[in-house]
């Protein structure tokens, strides 16, 4: 059917105006840090009188910033891998298996997404102090894996529910065992969703601030903790430079993930899913 050209498609001007204003409200405060980061003065300026890379140089010359960046990337990478390794089998168990207490298990997996992050952070802080995990790589990795798990789980569940179960039956009828069917049929079809989910999990970990804030020590802190301290104590434009780098890096990674999804969607029957919303719950608080 041809798309109707009026009445239903059109929106009225007050709604359009409201939309434009809200979008400006959403976008502008986010992007304002970019021009600010290219200033040269000690205090924040907009627009900068003189454009320079002063604060980027300062960032790359600062040992503490670089250490925090390195730690965050390590934590993001390792926690993404850990979360994926536990999320994929768990998703399969829910989608294809028979579980006792399924509802409870589900609630447990989704809980880190729904429960207040401050409570999770404080709980982990108190427990991890006892176990000497504060400021340690395993501590960060485990915490972030738990925080990204519900999100990976939802993404993968959506993807697996779109797979045609008769494909696995067909594989079985052709002589494939459980493992072979997974290896040659299910896993390849889930690959785009797994890859996309991992990219988003990586950024989620990188951006995670609340729990990192509590699990960092004075000598070992993530990038977000370092930013938090810098913002809290003295608002130096170096934070604007870091922010810009984070924005650009995140968008590049997401762009790449979208490309992977797009390419895979052309292949018939692969189960790529849109993911934005679950993530919002992850990254806030």
């Amino acid at each position: 059917m041809a798309s109707p050209s009026r009445s239903v498609g059109a929106t009225t001007w007050p709604v359009t105006l409201a939309t434009v204003l809200v979008l400006i409200f959403l976008l502008l405060p986010t992007l304002i840090v970019i021009p600010v980061s290219f200033g040269s003065q000690k205090y924040l300026q907009f627009p900068p009188e003189q454009w320079s890379l002063t604060w980027y140089r300062a960032f790359f010359a600062d040992r503490e910033w670089l250490a925090a960046t390195r730690l965050s990337i390590m934590v993001a990478g390792l926690s993404t891998i850990l979360a994926t390794l536990v999320a994929v089998p768990a998703t399969l168990a829910f989608a294809r298996g028979r579980l006792m207490g399924q509802g409870l298990a589900r609630a447990l997996i989704l809980a880190p997404m729904i429960l207040p992050h401050i409570v999770v952070a404080v709980g982990m802080y108190i427990a991890f102090s006892r176990w000497n995990l504060i400021g340690t790589l395993p501590g960060f990795v485990v915490a972030h894996a738990i925080l990204t798990l519900p999100f990976l789980f939802l993404t993968l569940s959506a993807a697996i529910s779109k797979l045609d179960p008769s494909l696995e039956l067909a594989a079985a009828s052709l002589g494939a065992g459980r493992v072979a069917a997974f290896r040659y049929i299910t896993l390849p079809l889930l690959m785009p969703a797994i890859a996309g989910g991992m990219a988003f999990a990586f950024i989620t970990s990188l951006d995670e601030a609340t729990v990192s804030n509590f699990l960092s020590s004075s000598t070992s802190k993530t990038l977000m903790k370092k930013m938090f301290e810098d913002i809290d104590f003295d608002v130096s434009p170096i934070v604007a430079a870091v922010s810009t780098l984070i924005i650009v890096g995140s968008l590049l990674l997401i762009g790449a993930a979208q490309l992977v999804r797009h390419a895979s969607q052309r292949a018939p029957k692969s189960a790529a899913t849109p993911l934005p919303v679950a993530r919002s719950a992850m990254k806030t608080a």
Partner: peptide, 26 residues
């Protein structure tokens, strides 16, 4: 087309262990 209860349990065990130890316990 489903997994046996035992296999399902094995598949979900790592996630549950991670959550119980480092989430429920804290």
């Amino acid at each position: 087309k489903g997994f046996s209860p035992r296999l399902s349990l094995v598949l979900i065990a790592p996630a549950m262990a991670l959550l119980v130890l480092f989430f429920v316990l804290p």
